[in-house]
Design a binder for these strands. Structure first.
Lengths: 155, 155
DNA sequence: GCCTAAAATTTCAAGCTTGAAATAAAATTC
DNA sequence: GAATTTTATTTCAAGCTTGAAATTTTAGGC
C-alpha cells in the first residue's frame, strides 16, 4: 500500500466513523423520544410496540422463534415481552398444530385496537421528528442507505 | 388543506416512516455486531465502551452527572456502569474539590491502555461494516444527516 | 443562623436484553 | 422400536436502562 493509499484509507475510515456516530446520534435521540411518548401517552414501551407491530403484520400470529427472528432479538427476550402483553390482554399464545413444543403468539381484538391507535401516533411522531427531510431528501437518503448496505454488516 | 396537499403529505409521511425503519435496521444490525465483537474479542460491553470513550475524551475525568448528560443516559445507569468499570480497575472515582456530593469518574492507566486497544478495533470494525459507502457517499450522507436534523428531534 | 429549595449521587423497582442451560417434543439414525 | 440428535420454548444469571425516591450536601432567602 502506497503512502497516498494509506492516507486515503485513513481519511475514509475517519469519515465512516463520523458517519456512524452521526447515525447513532440521530437514531438514539429519535428512539429516546419515541420511548418517552409511548410511555407518557400510551403507558407502553418500545419493545412491546415492536412485538405488536410484528404481530399486526401477521394476523394469524407468529411462532415464538419466528418472532425472535423477525425482530432480531433473543428467544428469551420474546418470551418475556409476550408474557407481559398476554398479562395485559393484548396478545395470547395458542398451540401450534402438530408440534407440542411450539406456540403461536397472536394479537387479541383488544391488542389490534390498541395497536391501531399506536400505529397512527407512531407514524405521526416519526413524520414530525424527521420533518427536516423533504420528499426528495428522504428518498435520496433511502436510496443511499439501501443500495450500499443491503442486508447490513457481515459478521 | 386541499386533497393534493393531503395526498402529498401522506406520501411524505410514509416515506419518512420507511426512512426511519431503514435507519433503525442499519444502526441496529451494526450495533448488534459491535456488541458481539466487543464481548467475544474484548470481554466487554457497548455501554462500558461508551463510558470509556467519553472519559478518554476528558482525561481529567467527568462528574457523574456530566457523564450522564454527555452520554444521554440516566444518572442511575451511569452509576452502575462506572461501578463495574471501577471494580475491573479500568476507572476510578475521585472526590470533587469543594462539593462533597459530587464525584469525578476517570480512566485509570489500565483503563486508558485498554481503551486505546478498543478504539483501534472499534474504528476498524465500523470501517469494515460501512464499506458499502465510499468517501463521496459517506460525505454526502453526513451532509444530509447533519443539515436537516441538527440537534435531533424536538420533544 | 435558621429554614427551605435545589443539587449530586445512589438506591430501587420494573422492564429489557443476551446467551446458555434446562426441559419437553420431534426428527433422525441404527 | 430404541437411542441419539436436533429443535422450540422457557428459565436463569448477569448486565443494562429508566425514572422516581432517598440521602447527603450546597445554595439561597429571610
Amino acid at each position: 500500500m502506497t503512502l497516498d493509499e494509506k492516507i486515503s484509507t485513513d481519511t475514509l475510515s475517519k469519515t465512516r466513523l463520523r458517519l456512524w456516530l452521526r447515525l447513532l446520534k440521530l437514531t438514539g435521540s429519535i428512539e429516546a423520544e419515541l420511548r418517552r411518548r409511548l410511555r407518557d401517552q400510551h403507558g407502553t414501551t418500545l419493545p412491546r410496540f415492536d412485538v405488536m407491530a410484528a404481530l399486526a403484520r401477521h394476523p394469524e400470529g407468529l411462532k415464538m422463534s419466528e418472532l425472535s427472528t423477525f425482530l432480531r432479538v433473543s428467544n428469551g427476550n420474546v418470551t418475556g415481552v409476550v408474557d407481559r402483553l398476554t398479562e395485559d390482554g393484548l396478545a395470547c399464545r395458542v398451540a401450534f398444530p402438530g408440534d407440542r413444543r411450539a406456540q403461536v403468539a397472536r394479537l387479541t381484538e383488544a391488542g389490534k385496537a390498541e395497536f391501531a391507535a399506536l400505529a397512527v401516533d407512531h407514524e405521526s411522531w416519526i413524520n414530525d421528528m424527521l420533518d427536516g427531510f423533504d420528499e426528495d431528501e428522504a428518498q435520496h437518503l433511502l436510496a443511499l442507505l439501501s443500495a450500499s448496505t443491503e442486508g447490513g454488516p457481515r459478521p
